[in-house]
Design a protein around this nucleic acid. Structure first.
Lengths: 195, 195
DNA sequence: AATATTTTGAAACGATCGTTTCAGAATGTA
DNA sequence: TACATTCTGAAACGATCGTTTCAAAATATT
């Protein structure tokens, strides 16, 4: 009945995600988005609603991509559950130095989650998914005797998740890759310690 | 030669700090500040410069107040160094539930430190001071044999500092005080473990 | 009391904010 | 080919942004 869009929505969302990720919500203007997405203002509002709605969409995409990243490590079948968890930590730590963008979930959480329920809900969904992956891994590690009995997989999963954002933040502030590796090393050590 | 100000600058800075702390830099308008500080626009610009300069002043005040808070625990002379460190952790964790504001240094760091060197420098000064307090404490704990030889006071201090912000963030997101206490408990356990 | 200097209050600045409007170009369907 | 519908592009919307201006009120000093 009518013409199709001149663009692929998912690609435009990815462009917008990059801008929001780097600059944050409030510091990103619609003008920034129009330029980055290479799309007309009208088309933007027509296809994605207003700025807030577009941001939520980006945040959902971010959560989906982040979880997919972690899950890709799970397919390395030759690794035990604990080894997989350690591998995820190692991969993340290695990435900290090369990618100058911090965890968007944490960044958005600090900026908006205080008084924006929709944002908080989307972030929580993404966090739950990632922490769920870690928890499953640690539970299986516990079943196989890689993790001592007194350890709580849920709490440890949260600690690792928290660590990820803290390490990134530390690196942004102190630019000390060695320090980050040492902090991660302590966390890995604690996973293996008998108590 | 001329009249005095009708206000005490430090009090107005404290008011501005509250607003910046809660809303962040970009989401705070000069109008918000004029209303919160109960001061005229002209007086504001006359006494504190522009928005960015006022923010830096607030950030410095925050860093000073935060460090003073931690140092006040140090005066409890009946505690050993490690006990003092644990006490600081306990006090912080207890405060998480009652104060809905997160660590302003971390919040500002996520929002601005990426491309604002002045902000990053002020935050780093504040962080260094706090981490320095923790490091001193842990060094003395090591000297007194409360901390095992293989532990690095500097790295542990960073881990605790990171933990503070992570725990607060976790509470904001999951509203689970029990979880926060457990995470802090693990950190305290690691301080005392023999390796 | 006179003076020099600063603060104060109110108004307004241009710029940019997020958003809407609308006419015309484009295109899937009949 | 003609129609119905949607997308596109450019302009403009009112609101708010951070900041400046300036005359009048205030007051520490001489």
């Amino acid at each position: 009945m009518a013409r199709d869009k001149d663009f692929i929505p998912e690609e435009k969302i990815a462009k917008a995600l990059d801008v929001f990720w780097e600059k944050g919500y409030n510091a990103t203007s619609m003008q920034d988005l129009v330029e980055a997405m290479q799309i007309n203002r009208s088309s933007l509002y027509n296809s994605f609603g207003d700025k807030h709605n577009l941001f939520l969409e980006c945040l959902r995409t971010y959560g989906y991509l982040a979880a997919k990243d972690y899950e890709s490590v799970l397919t390395l079948k030759e690794l035990s559950p604990l080894e997989t968890m350690e591998k995820i930590i190692d991969v993340y730590v290695a990435g900290i130095v090369y990618d100058c963008k911090c965890c968007m979930g944490m960044k958005s959480s600090f900026e908006l989650a205080g008084d924006d329920d929709e944002v908080r809900r989307v972030i929580k969904t993404a966090s739950d998914r990632t922490i769920g992956i870690f928890t499953d891994l640690l539970r299986r590690a516990k079943e196989q005797g890689e993790l001592s009995d007194d350890k709580d997989p849920v709490v440890l999963a949260h600690i690792i998740f928290n660590g990820f954002c803290g390490w990134k933040q530390s690196y942004l502030q102190f630019k000390d890759a060695h320090l980050v590796k040492k902090m991660a090393g302590y966390t890995k050590l604690h996973l293996k310690s008998p108590f």
